[in-house]
Design a protein around this nucleic acid. Sequence first.
DNA 1: AATAAGATCAACCGCTCCCGC
DNA 2: TGCGGGAGCGGTTGATCTTAT
Length: 226
Amino acid sequence: MGRSPCCEKEHTNKGAWTKEEDERLINYIKLHGEGCWRSLPKAAGLLRCGKSCRLRWINYLRPDLKRGNFSEEEDDLIINLHSLLGNKWSLIASRLPGRTDNEIKNYWNTHIKRKLHSRGINPLTHHPTTSTGGSNIHDEVKKNPTKVVVPLKKVLGGTDQTDVHHDSATAAEEDSNSSSTGVTADDQDLSHHHHHHLINLDLSIGLPTFEQVSEKPTAAMYLHYY
DNA sequence: AATAAGATCAACCGCTCCCGC
DNA sequence: TGCGGGAGCGGTTGATCTTAT
């Protein structure tokens, strides 16, 4: 019954990594590259589970990690991306060079949540916690679309791409429409296997309209509150 | 100086997704 | 087409550090 464990637990170390273990892992990956995490520990002479090695490398040992405090720009980017993508930490991390999903997740939970609360914004919904008179997101977008569009461009890498796809079928469908709308689908890499939050920003009619295909409105539209 | 409370973050766990057979 | 294994993701835990009393 059930699947086999990823490693033999009784023969693996757990908890904090030692310097020697780090060195072994770094040396092995330098020589052989990343990949095949399941067999790596044995090959590298580590008494660790493959998942543990992968995590250690990705979150701590990778040479391209930035480390250090987050800048204000990074803060804003994380907030904006979170409003678009929700808790898709790996997707958010892919937009922040040198930062890991784990690091961003921790930072969100310890710093940004509090920051948003202090600004009167619900970090879960990105809605203002104090009532603004009950206007919905569509009303807000119609009132002032440019305030939304500019941050979106920033979020999506400074290009004119304004469409975030999370579903391959939808993406393909929209690809076929892109020639008429002028909206490209070149951000598929952003979310090639997550489907929950889909936001269409249709530029073909001038005024942005948002189509929300998710369990709850994640509201890129609320970007302008920041 | 001692210690309690709060904050931080590395690491683990369980689940889902993807791909090859 | 279905199944199994590996990889990756997000939530959570717990050890350690910092600050307040």
